[in-house]
Amino acid sequence: MSQHAAQATTQRPDGRGAVRKLTAVLVGLTALVTLMLGAFALPSIHSGPRDMPVGVTGARDATRALQQKLDTDMWDVTVYDDAGALTSAVKDRDVVGGLGVSASGVDVYTATAASPMGGTLLTSLGNTLAAQQRTRATVHDLLPYPGDDPRGAGLSAAALPLIFGGMFPAVVLTRIFPGHRGLRTRLAGAVLFSLLAGAAVTAFLQYGTGSLTGNYAVTALGVSLGMAALSMTFIGLEALFGFAGLGIGAAVMMFLGNPLSGLATGPHWLPEGWSTLGQLLPPGASGSLLRANAYFDGTGAATPALTLAVWVVLGLLLILAADRRGVKAGGGEPAAGAAAPASVAGG
């Protein structure tokens, strides 16, 4: 047998080994698709109001009866002295809406921009109460979506661009400026991209589609903060753990952060516990910050902004740890998990 034939025989993959590898790949991909379906489907299937804060006002007997009726896991009821106090609470985001009961009818106070699903449910409840009292229900949408986008489609569509706006720069910059020597360039690039992309995305949603209102500069900075929180975390994960770290981080943000963000419905519509987790992840915090700046003049922006700032600090700490490790290694080695040069891999 010639040397080339012997070498080909040695390099030819074993049949059983190939079957095992193919089986592992197929099982892994099937599990991934199933997990993806579960991550996106389960929050929707089990969604509904969970301790949704609402207010009621009116005559004492009527409000007491209404409070008892709403005393379930669905609602968190607060009684207000009059309609003025209730409307102020809605605008201050203390409650997502409320009901005013009087002899002349039922007033439904909603804030579609805060919780469209909550507003729909309160309206239905108000119509039911009015029918029972043989009166009528009047709906007051105190904080609606803009007239150019009354269903809030632009806000709902912003979820994936916000995630990809953090993921793409990490991947691209890592490819163009790899290893420890390019780490600081990647960091600077991520910050600059976040500022530019935040300004562009906000301009498109506010001036292109009319989906946002509020102060453009403040809203754009909030969007940029969300993108920076993701991109810097991704760059830090890749610098320390290679593309495996980047892949795990991206999977968490896509499969957990996106469906649990509550951007389309509001966080009170998600299953208990999952809504809290969603708001602690950058996609959920970014969505809440965008909603607060775009429709509520910054009311409720402090918590999501602080959450994103913590993620930025986490990303910086990861990058700093990777930078120190690279300095100790001499600065010329590629980041962990990076592909070895072909000459070294080949022997």
Score class of each variant (00 low, 15 high):
residue 1 M to D: 13
residue 6 A to K: 13
residue 6 A to Y: 08
residue 7 Q to F: 10
residue 11 Q to A: 14
residue 18 A to F: 08
residue 22 L to P: 10
residue 23 T to R: 15
residue 27 V to C: 05
residue 28 G to N: 06
residue 28 G to W: 04
residue 29 L to C: 14
residue 32 L to E: 09
residue 35 L to D: 13
residue 36 M to Y: 11
residue 37 L to I: 15
residue 40 F to G: 09
residue 41 A to T: 13
residue 42 L to S: 04
residue 42 L to I: 08
residue 47 S to H: 01
residue 51 D to S: 10
residue 52 M to W: 01
residue 55 G to M: 00
residue 56 V to W: 02
residue 59 A to P: 15
residue 59 A to W: 07
residue 60 R to L: 12
residue 62 A to I: 03
residue 63 T to V: 12
residue 64 R to G: 09
residue 65 A to P: 07
residue 66 L to N: 06
residue 70 L to T: 11
residue 75 W to M: 02
residue 76 D to H: 06
residue 77 V to H: 06
residue 77 V to F: 02
residue 78 T to R: 12
residue 80 Y to E: 10
residue 81 D to S: 13
residue 81 D to C: 04
residue 86 L to N: 09
residue 87 T to N: 13
residue 88 S to E: 15
residue 92 D to M: 05
residue 92 D to G: 08
residue 93 R to F: 03
residue 107 D to G: 08
residue 108 V to G: 05
residue 108 V to D: 05
residue 110 T to S: 12
residue 111 A to T: 02
residue 111 A to K: 02
residue 116 P to Q: 02
residue 117 M to I: 09
residue 117 M to Q: 15
residue 120 T to V: 12
residue 120 T to R: 14
residue 120 T to C: 04
residue 123 T to H: 04
residue 124 S to N: 14
residue 130 A to K: 07
residue 131 A to M: 10
residue 131 A to L: 12
residue 134 R to A: 15
residue 136 R to H: 14
residue 138 T to V: 11
residue 143 L to M: 15
residue 158 A to I: 01
residue 158 A to R: 01
residue 159 A to T: 00
residue 160 L to Y: 02
residue 165 G to L: 06
residue 168 F to C: 12
residue 173 L to W: 10
residue 177 F to L: 14
residue 178 P to W: 02
residue 182 G to K: 09
residue 183 L to V: 03
residue 185 T to V: 15
residue 189 G to N: 06
residue 193 F to P: 02
residue 195 L to A: 09
residue 196 L to H: 08
residue 197 A to F: 14
residue 199 A to R: 00
residue 200 A to E: 05
residue 206 Q to N: 05
residue 206 Q to T: 06
residue 206 Q to M: 10
residue 206 Q to K: 07
residue 208 G to N: 11
residue 209 T to I: 03
residue 212 L to S: 09
residue 216 Y to P: 12
residue 219 T to W: 02
residue 220 A to V: 00
residue 222 G to P: 12
residue 223 V to N: 06
residue 223 V to W: 05
residue 224 S to C: 04
residue 225 L to Y: 08
residue 225 L to G: 08
residue 227 M to A: 11
residue 235 I to N: 11
residue 245 G to N: 01
residue 250 A to V: 07
residue 252 V to S: 09
residue 254 M to L: 15
residue 257 G to Q: 02
residue 257 G to A: 02
residue 258 N to W: 06
residue 261 S to D: 00
residue 264 A to C: 02
residue 266 G to W: 01
residue 270 L to H: 00
residue 271 P to T: 01
residue 272 E to T: 09
residue 273 G to N: 05
residue 277 L to H: 10
residue 277 L to Y: 08
residue 279 Q to C: 03
residue 283 P to C: 01
residue 284 G to V: 03
residue 286 S to K: 00
residue 289 L to S: 07
residue 290 L to M: 03
residue 296 F to H: 04
residue 300 G to R: 02
residue 307 T to H: 03
residue 308 L to Q: 07
residue 308 L to S: 07
residue 316 L to Q: 07
residue 317 L to I: 13
residue 318 L to Q: 10
residue 318 L to I: 06
residue 324 R to M: 11
residue 331 G to R: 02
residue 331 G to F: 01
residue 332 G to V: 09
residue 332 G to K: 11
residue 332 G to W: 06
residue 334 P to H: 13
residue 335 A to S: 15
residue 335 A to Q: 12
residue 336 A to W: 12
residue 338 A to E: 15
residue 339 A to W: 11
